[in-house]
């Protein structure tokens, strides 16, 4: 009996370039592809979730929900609308934010969020060299934001606060927080040269 083998067609794509292909195989219930997808992205997904929800056991639960949703909705990924990593992070961030805002964890949440010293700290746990280089690039891009933009983006993205809550935390007018978040993200996008 013969087996179908893939025809070699140039070099294998690496890292995040492989994600779209893995996602479409996940949509067809390919568990091997899912395992690869997990290995390529788990440190980034878990790291983001953990940063937002803080509690490690909650972070594990949320990460589980995220991967389950990625598996279930892999067919809904549309490469013409977003990159695979952006799509995955959108799902992960939303899940993390939903968790910190849910009533059950509200009481356990650290309400006195001390954004000052935690802000965009250096991460030393990653062994991924590519990510370290990338992190350096992102950190210097963040330096191009004004301090007030950085603060607003940090509270919204890593803190999981709504722009209304950000305005209250910083004691600034409602529209101002919204504008800082947007202007900060636009600056970040333009400095990084991100397309989508």
């Amino acid at each position: 009996m013969t087996h179908l083998t893939p025809v070699p067609s140039g070099p294998e794509p690496e890292g995040t370039d492989r994600l779209p292909g893995l996602l479409s195989r996940c949509a067809r219930s390919d568990e091997g592809a899912f395992a690869e997808l997990y290995d390529l992205t788990a440190a980034r997904v878990y790291g983001l979730v953990r940063r937002v929800v803080r509690d490690p056991s909650h972070a594990e639960e949320v990460t589980q929900e995220v991967y389950l949703e990625l598996w279930r909705h892999a067919a809904h990924f549309d490469p013409s609308r977003a990159s695979a990593i952006s799509w995955m992070f959108t799902i992960a961030h939303r899940r993390a934010v939903d968790r910190v805002r849910s009533a059950s964890s509200a009481s356990r949440r650290d309400l006195a969020y001390s954004h000052g010293h935690r802000e965009i700290e250096h991460d030393t746990t990653s062994e991924l060299v590519v990510d370290r280089l990338e992190a350096t690039r992102v950190r210097s891009a963040l330096d191009q934001l004004t301090a007030t933009q950085r603060e607003a983006v940090d509270l919204a993205f890593f803190g999981g606060y709504t722009h209304t809550e950000v305005a209250a935390l910083l004691d600034i007018p409602l529209g101002t927080a919204k504008t800082r978040i947007r202007d900060g993200l636009i600056r970040l996008r333009d400095v990084l040269g991100v397309e989508r």
């Binding site: 788990a42 440190a43 980034r44 997904v45 878990y46 790291g47 983001l48 953990r50 940063r51 977003a82 990159s83 990593i85 952006s86 992070f89 959108t90 961030h93 965009i120 991460d123 746990t125 990653s126 062994e127 991924l128 990510d131 990338e134 992190a135 992102v138 950190r139 891009a141 983006v153 993205f157 890593f158 993200l185 636009i186 970040l188 996008r189 990084l192 991100v194 397309e195 989508r196």
Partner: peptide
């Protein structure tokens, strides 16, 4: 997409 880049700052196994 820009926000997703921030995820490189919080990598954790």
């Amino acid at each position: 997409a820009a926000a997703a880049e921030l995820g490189t700052l919080t990598v954790e196994e």
